[in-house]
Amino acid sequence: MESQQLAELTARARRLAVPGTRRVLGLAGAPGAGKSTLAGRLVERLGPLAVLVPMDGFHLAQAELRRLGRTGRKGAPDTFDAAGYAALLARLRAPEPGVTVYAPAFDRGLEEPVAGSIPVAPDVPLVVTEGNYLLHDEGPWAPVRALLDEVWFLEPDDRRRVSRLVERHIRFGKDRPEAERWVRESDEANARLVATGRTRADLVVPVP
């Protein structure tokens, strides 16, 4: 992402970060769109004004995916605790004085969510959250959009996005044929679903 584009997006996020209030900014997009990268850069630039709470902390645990028979579909909408994510967003929107909220994170090395990993102090004005299904309007995902003050939809070049996804899966333990198959059969099915929410975003962000 070019420095000018990042500066403009940071300025827009900063306008949401008003001390004494609590707002939530969402970054949505297909797998491999660059959501976590942009979210991290925004929070780094905003410093104490913002904290990052990824949607991925609400992945179901591997044991539960096995019980449900969904391990081969990990990353699909029904492999997350969507209701739990919505409940956390509702709690984050209404901070209680003196109460730190602890959000879960996702450990890619373990491929597991880790509870209580991210402290959100009550005086932080902006929560940045990112994930595939922030604009999904079906089932338990439907309440999420209304809990976000703004949502940006990241739109990268698809060939680069797919290439990045394959390399990510290899980096975290899959061999190349397995990574390519997973992207083709799982990630891209999810990407097509994610794309249907594009029109519900406040801003579409082209990603180089």
Rank of each mutant, 00 (worst) to 15 (best):
S3Q: 15
S3D: 14
L6S: 04
E8Q: 15
R12T: 08
R14F: 03
R15D: 14
A17F: 06
G20V: 00
G20W: 02
G20S: 01
G20Y: 00
R22S: 09
G32D: 10
G32P: 10
A33Q: 11
G34L: 01
T37R: 07
L38W: 04
R41Q: 15
L42A: 12
V43S: 09
V43W: 11
E44G: 11
L49M: 06
A50D: 08
L52W: 13
V53Q: 01
D56F: 09
G57S: 05
E64G: 01
R66W: 08
R66K: 11
R66N: 11
R73D: 14
R73P: 11
K74T: 02
G75Y: 09
D78N: 13
F80Y: 14
A83P: 10
G84M: 09
G84Y: 08
Y85N: 02
Y85G: 03
A86K: 03
A86W: 02
A87E: 14
A90H: 10
A90Q: 14
A90W: 06
A90V: 08
P97Y: 05
P97T: 11
V99Y: 00
V101S: 01
R108E: 08
G109C: 02
L110M: 12
E111C: 09
E112V: 01
V114R: 12
V114C: 06
G116I: 05
G116C: 08
I118W: 01
A121C: 01
P122V: 13
V124Q: 08
V124L: 06
V124I: 15
V128Y: 05
T129C: 06
E130V: 04
N132Y: 09
Y133Q: 10
Y133E: 11
L135A: 03
E138Q: 15
E138Y: 00
G139R: 05
G139K: 01
W141K: 02
A142F: 00
A142W: 00
V144E: 03
A146G: 11
D149A: 05
F153T: 08
F153Y: 15
D158H: 10
S163E: 14
L165E: 03
R168S: 06
R168I: 05
I170V: 15
P177S: 07
A179S: 13
A179D: 07
E180F: 06
R181D: 13
V183P: 00
R184T: 13
A195I: 10
R200H: 14
D202C: 12
L203R: 14
L203T: 15
V204F: 07
V205R: 03
V207M: 14
V207N: 12
